[in-house]
């Protein structure tokens, strides 16, 4: 900066650095939203692929397969969708600086997410077609598997956030990590609703 005579009255270096910290959190959340938007295009591509296959395939269901059972997946859907409300309540508690309330509802979200994963695993185990059984099998496992991976990631992220809530003073002025994780959870939820309609309702 040697050659330029800078206006020192703009900002003192100290205030710049204090503001930096808060801003950085906001950058993270912004960046995370950008990332989620991008990620959603992968799902969109899979959905488009699914629709193309389903509307154009000559023999869609593999031999001996009648279709998909809807009852258990529907229960699973209810659990996952309601967990979006639960995680919201957890966030509200954090906002009101009630850490134990936050932890309780956060943990409940994790439990509901895990229940979903368990239900998915049980469903997979009971199916009489596999990943390589035609386009039906391929798209089914691809979509539910890729989504399930996201649910798993969500639960793991929630675990990390829960752990970090025990660091003293860590969540004093809100926490981007919590906001981002919860956003991710809503995202995973919305994707599931579309997926459920495409795969289970539209048979």
């Amino acid at each position: 900066m040697s050659s330029v005579n800078l206006d020192q009255s703009l900002n003192s270096a100290a205030t710049v650095h204090a503001a930096d910290h808060h801003e950085e959190g906001e950058h993270r959340l912004f960046g995370f939203i950008v990332f989620l938007l991008s990620e959603s295009v992968i799902f969109l591509s899979f959905f488009v692929g699914y629709i193309v296959y389903k509307t154009s395939a000559t023999d869609w269901l593999p031999a001996g397969v009648e279709g998909l059972e809807v009852r258990e997946p529907f229960i699973n859907t209810i659990v996952l969708v309601s967990s979006s409300f639960v995680i919201y309540i957890a966030e509200r508690y954090l906002h009101k600086e009630n850490l134990w309330g936050f932890r309780a509802f956060w943990l409940l979200t994790m439990a509901m997410g895990s229940f979903f994963l368990y239900g998915q695993a049980v469903e997979w185990m009971g199916l009489d077609f596999g990943f390589t059984d035609g386009l039906f099998g391929g798209t089914f496992y691809l979509l539910t598997g890729f989504h399930g991976l996201h649910v798993l990631t969500g639960v793991l992220l929630q675990g990390i956030m829960l752990g970090r809530s025990f660091i003293p003073g860590n969540y004093d002025d809100g926490e981007v990590g919590v906001a981002a994780t919860s956003l991710f959870w809503h995202f995973v939820d919305v994707i599931w609703i579309i997926l459920f309609i495409l795969i289970y309702v539209w048979q």
């Binding site: 950008v34 938007l37 991008s38 990620e39 959603s40 295009v41 992968i42 969109l44 591509s45 899979f46 692929g49 391929g138 691809l142 890729f146």
Partner: peptide, 13 residues
Amino acid sequence: LFGLPALTAGAVM
């Protein structure tokens, strides 16, 4: 951001 995910989807498949 909007294009690469489509390629990724194709590449995974």
